[in-house]
Simulated assay, not measured.
Amino acid sequence: MPQHLAVETLGGGVRLITLQRPQALNALTTALLAELAQALAEAEADPHTQVVVLTGNRKAFAAGADLKEMAERDLTGILNDPRQSSWEQIRRFSKPLIAAVNGFALGGGCELAMHADIIIAGEDARFGQPEINLGIMPGAGGTQRLPRTVGKSLAMQMVLTGEAIDARHALRAGLVSEVTQPELVVERALQLARLIAGKAPLALRLAKEALLKAMDTDLASGLRLERHAFTVLAGTRDREEGIAAFQEKRPAQFSGH
């Protein structure tokens, strides 16, 4: 039983994971990240879960790494931090992941949000990489994912000044896909999750893989992956079911095969 998470299976192929360290604005500890990695591994293995929504609370999605824990670690401890393996497990999650963000998403919290495939933000959300104020720099992918998402200039500004941006700025920069009222953030994320969960499972995984590949490879390599994935999907029963359902004007019943 996780101590720092609440995990709910909501039906319809959707699972909701809520970070629960409200007394510390959901600051990320080694234990919390390990629990999150385990929760995602369980969702990965569950054939009835197609989409995961990850959220925090109204004050904070996650306000960064836990500074008390960081202060207790020496340099060797940081370099061999078990959180790095947890981050890698989170990165490898292959099913669609939606982040529902209210309040602070700072440092590791911003990096965690960027691990999601879609970010829905409340009007009160703030995204930032303030590590420079502590004499350090982002260490969970922030210097790599942020410029790929918002561009070099804004990423440089956020990382080098430590200043956060609000939800509307994040929307204009492409960091989030939608901004809504804070009280509707989770509801909207779950609505999208249910819509996505109704699609063909294999198509979802391969489409996600191809889209992520576009962010870290050259066009020719990305096109080769896309062609291979398209060919694989062309031979599936779900492709036949999708075409038949369209022609018969009925909802498709995908099986994942």
Rank of each mutant, 00 (worst) to 15 (best):
M1G: 14
Q3C: 08
H4Q: 11
H4Y: 14
L5K: 05
A6L: 11
E8N: 12
E8A: 15
G12A: 04
L19Y: 03
L19D: 10
A24C: 09
L25D: 15
L25Y: 15
E35S: 03
E35N: 08
L36G: 03
A39Y: 11
A39G: 10
E42I: 07
A43Q: 08
E44I: 08
P47R: 06
V51W: 02
V52I: 03
V53R: 03
V53D: 06
V53C: 08
L54I: 10
A60I: 05
F61T: 01
F61A: 01
F61R: 02
A71H: 13
E72D: 04
R73F: 05
D74L: 03
L75S: 05
L75K: 08
L79Y: 00
Q84Y: 14
Q84D: 06
S85Y: 01
E88R: 14
Q89G: 11
P96F: 06
A99D: 01
A100S: 12
V101P: 07
F104A: 15
G107M: 01
E111I: 04
L112H: 07
L112Y: 10
A116N: 09
D117C: 03
D117L: 07
I118Y: 10
A121D: 07
A125M: 07
R126N: 12
G128V: 03
G128F: 01
Q129T: 01
I132N: 06
P138Y: 01
P138T: 01
G139E: 15
G141N: 02
L146I: 12
T149N: 04
V150P: 07
L154N: 00
Q157R: 15
Q157T: 13
Q157C: 07
M158Q: 03
G174Y: 15
S177A: 12
V179H: 06
V179G: 00
T180E: 12
T180Y: 11
Q181N: 06
L184M: 08
A189Q: 04
A189I: 08
A189M: 03
L202K: 13
A203L: 11
L204G: 10
L204M: 15
L211G: 13
K213R: 13
A214R: 13
D218N: 10
S221F: 04
L223K: 12
R224S: 10
L225R: 11
E226C: 11
E226T: 15
H228G: 08
A229E: 12
G235I: 02
T236Q: 11
R239V: 09
R239D: 06
E241F: 11
G242M: 04
A245H: 04
Q247K: 15
K249S: 14
K249P: 02
P251I: 11
A252R: 00
S255C: 06
H257D: 15
